[in-house]
Design a protein around this nucleic acid. Structure first.
Lengths: 198, 198
DNA sequence: CGTTAGTTTGAGAGGACTCAAAGTCTGTGG
DNA sequence: CCACAGACTTTGAGTCCTCTCAAACTAACG
């Protein structure tokens, strides 16, 4: 248990450093609301119909968020070490998700419960700022992803993703990368074959 | 001037109602930081290279956000009455925008200066909540738009936009709607011709 | 070491693009 | 109030990228 507690503090520090600054008290509070969660490869982190109540921070691992559209599974997001994800509509509207989340590797997550985070944000300026920065960063990421797929050929989308998220490209199965880039697995396979030199 | 002040209060109430609740004091503060701005058709609201310092609330009018990519103008967003927009990367990173904003109709805007908003959010819980809800809503909207263009034919994208933003479809020039939906103007024109019955 | 999931390769079809030209609308000035 | 210039939209023809369907191949896991 000692070791777990230490790690939780590490993550609190990591979050503080990335998104804000913290007094010792605030760091204690942040640490106290973090929830460590461990998932095996293939395990579901959030299933359709559940309500998302956390902002998730991936310590180590790989996840995909996906949903069904016209009977097909679409990949909304791929996330890896040291990044944030959440099921936006479910989290903020407190409704059941359409977005499901699956661990593609053994994955260690530290979750911030939204309700607790909002409580402490009211009285602790730096945590308020942390929460806001997390939302801001998510907005920027969604904008960058939108740009990634806008008016680009399949090949260019892939090459840009390689630069933007090299870890994801190396570690995620081709099907999900293809899906995330809005192309079929066949097309991505051909793009890769054509790209080998570059 | 009397009339302008009244209108500013109206907008403060509108924002309070949409995004949070407010004490009288908080409503006064919110009103005091709102900046009314008026633009003629075709006028630029934000030019490339300027730093976005406000969250904009459209009282009446129509705007488009666009940027250049591979020498072409791409429409990132179309916004109309009673909606929020901002140049996300510029606003949060305090960098010059790549995103420009143009008024497509005579447009009345009330702007929230980010710096002032952050100041008052630190000490006024309801304004903090308002700010957060605005960010949350923006995230949801960007997700909905991402879904709109994912694995859909040109025709389906258009039909869905008609349901989602009918005012925009009625009032914006075809070129920008086409661009926003990730198709050429020619394609949208053909889609419309094929859709007349429906 | 077999079974199944995941990836590659092939052939053919189709949606959306490009380039080009004609047609229509809008607003300004005579 | 009409005429004209410029902007916007429509229509056409041909091409190409990506999709679909199908089958072979490879890798991963028990």
């Amino acid at each position: 248990m000692k070791e777990l507690a230490n790690t939780t503090r590490d993550i609190a520090r990591e979050l503080a450093r990335k998104y804000s600054t913290m007094t010792h008290d605030e760091l204690d509070i942040l640490e106290s609301i973090l929830v460590p969660m461990k998932y095996a490869k293939g395990e579901m982190i959030l299933k359709e119909g559940e309500v998302c109540q956390h902002i998730y921070y991936i310590d180590r691992g790989l996840i995909r968020q996906f949903y069904f559209k016209n009977g097909k599974e679409l990949t909304e997001h791929l996330g890896t070490d040291h990044s944030i994800f959440m099921c936006i509509e479910s989290l903020f509207r407190e409704e059941p998700t359409r977005l499901q989340v699956e661990a593609l590797e053994p994955t260690m997550i530290y979750a911030l419960p939204k309700l607790r985070l909002e409580e402490v944000a009211l009285h602790h300026g730096n945590i308020q700022i942390l929460y806001r920065k997390i939302l801001e960063e998510s907005l920027i990421i969604s904008q960058v992803h939108a740009d990634l797929v806008r008016f680009e050929t399949a090949q260019d989308r892939y090459l840009k993703l390689c630069k933007l998220m090299p870890q994801v490209v190396l570690r995620a199965p081709l099907v999900y990368i293809a899906n995330y880039l809005q192309m079929t697995p066949e097309t991505l396979s051909r793009v890769r074959a054509a790209t080998l030199g570059q």
